[in-house]
Structures are given as structure tokens and as C-alpha cells.
Write a protein that binds this DNA or RNA. Structure first.
Lengths: 180, 180
DNA sequence: AAAGCTTAGGTGATATGTCACGCAATTCCA
DNA sequence: TGGAATTGCGTGACATATCACCTAAGCTTT
């Protein structure tokens, strides 16, 4: 940091971001930080779920028959496998999910949403989505919704192409309806 | 989840997001997840820093005289104070920062960037910014940079207004140049 | 200047996440 | 078909984060 003090002109060469890019990146980081903080806080105070809990339950809730191998679940929500393993065990102790061996391939553990888990999720989702709407969309002018989606989708596509992570399966997070 | 199966029409009433909003939200969450994962991964493999380490060092590097009270640092990067306290102690053991009591108010601990910390940060920043450019901006059409910035800035302003968190001080994260 | 409030931080118990490794089921292939 | 490679996961040691609570310095009031 603190070099490249060129008074605000774009930086064409390899190393740094030009000023328009810096603007976008700064805005992105700020939104990301605050939003994560607030979502966590809201969930924990209005429900018995943490944001990670919520992510797991949401992924399961839209899965076929509310059930998913650990490997797939990890890919869906972008976690390390062993994190899922630990987390799911803890959630099972709270009766939010249950685990069982697949009959077809006895290496795989299938994680299943319990009835209680589904109820807790649906109760929590109301407040969560409400928060997202209030914090995110109430501040977003209608005419920028389209461009924002486009921009983020482009970036996402690029990340998948460039990134080192196995490409994910379709996933709908945080109150995004699955319209079956 | 899994209710409100209205076949794709916008949902006007209170509870859920309409389909354009769902599109934006889904894209946002996906980008957020992948990007965090990749940034962490890159930093840890190309330097001796984690993403949290990097955030701390970046905040300090743009501070006046490379020095900041813990309280301010926490606000800058959106952490709980005690997290900063613990983390900074560990970083001090690695000689990335150092702590000392303020002379004017002996309650405050001032965290300072060490010479070694600055060197490590500057070495790490090169690869980090390179990754951000490759993953984020290479996928973002120039004509969408402006709208994206605008959209995220609107959202950010709204979060600050609505949110429960103390409004932050100015902060420039992750390789955003401070052009003093 | 002492009682009581407020503010900055540290601390220790606990929860959570990561990493390296190991084991067992499956698949590959000579 | 039997051994090697691969795959899916669990585990335990360790790193990190959170939470409730503690101390002490400064401030305010009387």
C-alpha cells in the first residue's frame, strides 16, 4: 500500500487497480463486511440459528428430498468438507439434521433435514429475508437492480472459470425462493 | 423456503423478494462465497498471512503513523473488540505488529505496524491485488463498473443508516490505494 | 476528593474452523 | 481377481472467534 501516489489517474499497468476499480472494490468490501455482521447478529438474536447453520439448512431445504451427501453440501455452500462434517455433527445433536449412510455407496454420509430443522428454518427465514430486504434492497434503486445482477453474474462466471474451486451445483441461498 | 411457488412472478407483498431481487441476491451471495474462499487460499499459499491478518495490516498501513487504538481498528475492519485483542496479540508474537499504551490515555492500547509487518504486507499485496483483478475485474465489463459502484455504494449507505453497528471511519481495504 | 458512571481492553471458557492424517468402501486395471 | 489408486468421510490437535465478565483509567458530580 501507500505507494503509487499518482494523484488519482487510472493505473494502466499490471500491478494495481485503477481508480474506478478501486471505487467498486471498496464499495464491495464495505457492503460485504457490514452485511455479514448484521445477518449474523439478526439470526442469532431472533432465532436459535447462526448464519452457518442457516446456510446448511437452506441448502438442504432445496435439495431433492431434503437430503444431500456431505461432499455435495460442502460444494454448495463453499465450505471445506471437514468443516461440514464437524458442523453437521453439532447440528445433529440439536436435532436440526440427521445423518445416515447411503445404501448405494456406503462411503457417503447423507445429511437430512429433520422436521424440527425445517420448522426452525422457516421461522428464521421470515426475519432473515426481512432484514435482507431492509438493508440491501431498500437502499438499491430499482433501475440499478438489473445492472447489479448483471455485473455480479459476470463476475461470478469469471470466478468459476478462473478459480481453483470445483464448480458448484445450483444453489439458492438465504431466502431465495426455489419456485418448484 | 419452498413455499411461494408462484411460477416466477414478482412477489409484491411484505415477506419475500421479487424475482429480480432474488437474482441480484443469489449473484451477490455466490460471488461473496467464492471470492472469500479464493482470497483466503491465495494469501495463505503465497504469503505467511491469512485474510484476517491482511485486513489488520492494511488498516494499520493507511493509518496516521501506522498506529491505531484497538477500538478504532475494530471499527475499521468490522470486528468485535475482543477478537482484535486476541488476534493482535498473536500477530505481535509473529512480529507483525506491536502494542503499547498510549501516553495521553493509559486505557488505550495502540497497535503499531512493525517494519517487518510492513514488508510482509507489501509483499503479499502484490499477489492479492493481482488475484482480485483476475477474479473480479477481468470478469466485469467496463461499462458495468460504474453502475456496480453506484449500486453498492447506495446499499452501503443504506446499511449504515439502517444498521445497528457504529458507523465506521474511512477505511481502504485490500490493496485500495490511499493516494495521500 | 470520593462515589458512581462510562469507556478501553484483557481474559478464560467455550464454540467454531482448519489441517493433516487415517480408515474403509469403491474403482481401476494388469 | 488381487493389489494399487481413488474417493468420501471422520478425527484429533491445533488455530481462531465469541461471549460474559473483569479490571482499571478517566470523567462527573457532589
Amino acid at each position: 500500500m501507500s505507494r503509487n501516489s499518482n494523484g488519482g489517474a487510472p493505473v494502466p499497468e499490471g500491478g494495481w487497480l485503477d481508480s474506478e476499480q478501486q471505487r467498486a472494490w471498496l464499495a464491495y468490501i464495505r457492503v460485504q463486511l457490514r452485511l455479514t455482521y448484521e445477518m449474523n447478529r439478526q439470526l442469532q438474536s431472533d432465532s436459535e440459528l447462526s448464519l452457518p447453520d442457516y446456510d446448511v439448512l437452506t441448502a438442504l431445504s432445496v435439495a431433492d428430498r431434503g437430503l444431500m451427501p456431505i461432499k455435495v453440501l460442502a460444494a454448495q455452500i463453499g465450505w471445506e468438507r471437514s468443516r461440514v462434517s464437524h458442523h453437521v455433527r453439532r447440528m445433529a445433536e440439536r436435532d436440526l439434521v440427521s445423518c445416515s449412510l447411503s445404501t448405494s455407496d456406503r462411503r457417503v454420509t447423507e445429511v437430512r433435514l429433520t422436521q424440527h430443522g425445517r420448522e426452525v428454518l422457516e421461522a428464521a427465514a421470515v426475519g432473515h429475508v426481512e432484514l435482507v430486504r431492509r438493508l440491501f434492497f431498500d437502499g438499491l434503486p430499482r433501475e440499478l437492480e438489473g445492472p447489479l445482477s448483471q455485473a455480479l453474474e459476470s463476475v461470478y462466471t469469471n470466478i468459476i472459470a478462473q478459480g481453483t474451486l470445483p464448480p458448484p451445483v445450483d444453489w439458492r441461498p438465504h431466502g431465495v425462493d426455489d419456485r418448484r
